[in-house]
Simulated scan of single mutants.
Amino acid sequence: MKATGIVRRIDDLGRIVIPKEIRKTLKIREGDPLEIFTDREGMVVLKKYSPVGGFGTAVTQYAQSLAESLGCTVCITDNDTVIAVAGAGKKQMEENYVTEQLREVISERKQVFAEEESKEFCKITVEDPQFCEEVITPVISDGDAVGAIVFLNREEEQKFGKAELKIARATARFLGCQLT
């Protein structure tokens, strides 16, 4: 663990202020849920909570199954990071932060079906490999937009259609239901 040199006191209500620099670095915004861990030595660890990230290897296996069945790259994200990715470009995208543009798509609960030249085309991570087409569907759980299912296509001659849109929508609904 890395020491920051910052010391804060707990107030009479048991609250502590997380410094702005740390919130900015870790992309923690007002209202974000934090998970609290303790260990036997008395250490308290705060971690940004991700309901989608709680699936562990199951979500990775699900992404892999979809990628193999559809012949495309599949990403499953929460509101901040790529939780699971399978298919072409996996190494560049895995565990990276998502772009502000994708965060907006998720928060606005928009389904995107776009080609690269379209103004609706959304980069998923800053280090995105080259894709020519995408389907993005937000994952909604208990009324909250908690992430997205993303299908990415590199094959110019193999275009996405209504089937990919429906599968993305069904996958997002399934994951949303599992989180409740």
Rank of each mutant, 00 (worst) to 15 (best):
E35W: 00
S65E: 13
Y97G: 12
A168M: 07
A67C: 05
V74P: 08
S141A: 15
A172S: 14
V74R: 05
P33N: 13
D142W: 07
G42W: 11
N153E: 09
E127K: 08
L66G: 06
K110D: 11
M1W: 06
I106S: 03
G89E: 03
A3L: 11
F151S: 09
G176K: 12
A172T: 04
D128A: 03
E127F: 10
V150I: 11
G54T: 02
C122F: 02
E133A: 15
Q101L: 10
F160I: 02
T180L: 09
E95P: 00
P129A: 10
Q111K: 14
T73M: 01
K27Q: 13
A163W: 02
D78W: 08
V85M: 07
Q158R: 12
V45G: 00
I18C: 00
I149D: 03
V105L: 08
V44R: 04
Q178L: 15
K110S: 12
F131S: 10
A63L: 04
E133M: 13
V126L: 12
F37D: 07
I136A: 08
R15F: 07
D142K: 15
C177K: 15
D142F: 12
V59C: 07
G54P: 00
T81L: 13
R173H: 11
I140E: 12
G89F: 04
A67W: 08
E120T: 10
E156C: 14
V105K: 13
T137W: 14
E95A: 07
I106E: 02
T99L: 01
I16T: 06
F151N: 01
Q178A: 15
G176I: 08
D12S: 14
D32Y: 04
I22S: 00
I76T: 07
R23N: 11
R169M: 05
E35N: 09
E100F: 10
K20P: 11
R169Y: 06
C132L: 13
C132Q: 12
A163R: 13
G42K: 10
I136M: 09
Q178D: 12
P51W: 01
K48L: 15
D32I: 05
C132S: 14
A63F: 03
E155R: 12
T81W: 12
E117F: 10
Q111N: 10
S50F: 09
A148I: 00
Y97M: 02
M93L: 08
E35A: 14
P19V: 05
K47W: 02
E41V: 09
N153G: 08
A172Y: 02
I16R: 00
E100C: 02
E21H: 06
K48T: 13
G54W: 00
V17Q: 05
D80F: 13
G87Q: 01
L102D: 00
D80W: 11
F151K: 11
R8I: 07
R169G: 02
A84N: 08
T137A: 14
V105W: 07
L179V: 06
A67D: 09
V126M: 09
G53H: 04
Y97W: 01
F55E: 03
F55I: 05
M93P: 07
E117Y: 14
V139I: 15
A145Y: 08
E156F: 14
I22Q: 00
G53Y: 09
P51F: 03
G31I: 08
K20F: 07
D32L: 02
F55M: 09
V85E: 04
E134V: 03
I149A: 06
R173I: 12
G71P: 01
A58T: 13
I83S: 03
R9W: 08
L46S: 10
K123I: 04
R23W: 01
L152C: 04
